[in-house]
Design a protein around this nucleic acid. Structure first.
Lengths: 201, 201
DNA sequence: ACAATATTAGGACATTGTACTAATTCATGC
DNA sequence: GCATGAATTAGTACAATGTCCTAATATTGT
């Protein structure tokens, strides 16, 4: 692991621990036993660290989606994928709490609308497939509204989690929010689909 | 308006504009034409500003709830109240984006779990009333789950709004999220209730 | 081996939040 | 009317921060 990667790893760790604003670049450098100037060489601005972490987050997310799309559509598999997405978000939670900086970066270095659009189109495609194989049924609830709900949930849950349940362990938090999202799916699941939800409730 | 109130007002304005972390105490002082020392006298730490803004937010929220509870329960009145709650949140949005600081303050000066618990109990009480008068029907969707959904929404919408739609005007944003919440109510509204939702869609 | 490039260390700089002191204003007693 | 004490204000000092610059060292390619 080269220096750049070590810095990134440590930044993620410290940001998750105490937040972006409470973690100084000197603290990152000190805990890696490198000089501030060295850190500054690899990441000129603190913002660059944030962008790099966001990239890492997005790459892992993409890989998780890719694995799902390789196999057959199935509600059970989809929920499993969501749980991996939530875990990835949790592991990068530090950057999602520095909203002030995040806002500054979005729209410049990081193309957030594109990420958002991809998320929505993936969601829609997945729901269509799940309806086709008979796991879901959108006769009582508009599919577009379901996409809205899910997209909103996936964007925001980590913020609520860190504010409302900062003391809970990772497992408990993930379990809690997987339960919530499963309840949403229970609303639109067919009998066939219901069978694949039970384990998350 | 005394100096303390002027500072508070300006802090809310500047925090909303550029976020907590991008607004220095000297900038607040300069735009009020007072000395940094004077500001430091009224608010020793920047955190104290945040706490004061949160207090202002909570007081206005309480007043809005109080007005609703003075009258008769009705879905239309409730939605109107929600729109006022959303507006109040929007007007204090600056502090909700400084999540790092927010987390530090919550649990010490500001009793967030209490606020949260109050919100949930109010929500539950309101939904019970609306079911009783025949505007809502919770035979298909658990009322507790509806409380979860609404509480989650009210906590998080402003963060999504500032990240996803930073360019939109206040009116458009409020309209958008009132539509979303109305769609949630449409799921559990009786025919009698449906009539009071239309104007928000 | 040497030249060119990449990496590292150390420190300078402006800016930040905060703390301190002295000056000024204000309110309240007589 | 004025003296006294408290409240408010201004100005500045301080440590810590993010950023930048320069010189030294390590690495690479030929």
């Amino acid at each position: 692991m080269n220096t750049r990667e070590r810095i990134l790893q440590k930044a993620i760790e410290l940001f998750n621990q105490s937040g972006m604003y409470n973690t100084g670049v000197r603290e990152i450098a000190r805990s890696l036993e490198i000089s501030p100037g060295n850190l500054s060489y690899h990441f000129a601005r603190k913002e660059d660290l944030l962008v790099a972490i966001l990239d890492s987050y997005r790459d892992l997310n993409d890989a998780i989606y890719a694995t799902y799309f390789e196999g057959q559509p199935e509600l059970g598999r989809y929920l499993e994928m969501i749980s991996r997405l939530l875990e990835n978000t949790y592991d990068h939670r530090g950057v999602f709490l520095g909203l002030d900086e995040l806002r500054a970066v979005l729209g410049t270095e990081y193309d957030y609308p594109a990420v958002e659009e991809k998320r929505r189109s993936f969601l829609d495609r997945i729901l269509v497939d799940l309806e086709q194989i008979g796991d879901l049924d959108f006769s009582t609830l508009d599919r577009a509204f379901m996409v809205d709900i899910l997209a909103f949930f996936q964007r925001c849950w980590i913020m609520e989690a860190m504010i409302s349940y900062p003391h809970l362990k990772k497992d408990r938090i993930l379990k809690r929010y997987m339960r919530t999202i499963s309840l949403h799916f229970a609303q639109v699941a067919t009998l066939q689909g219901q069978g694949q939800i039970g384990m998350w409730l």
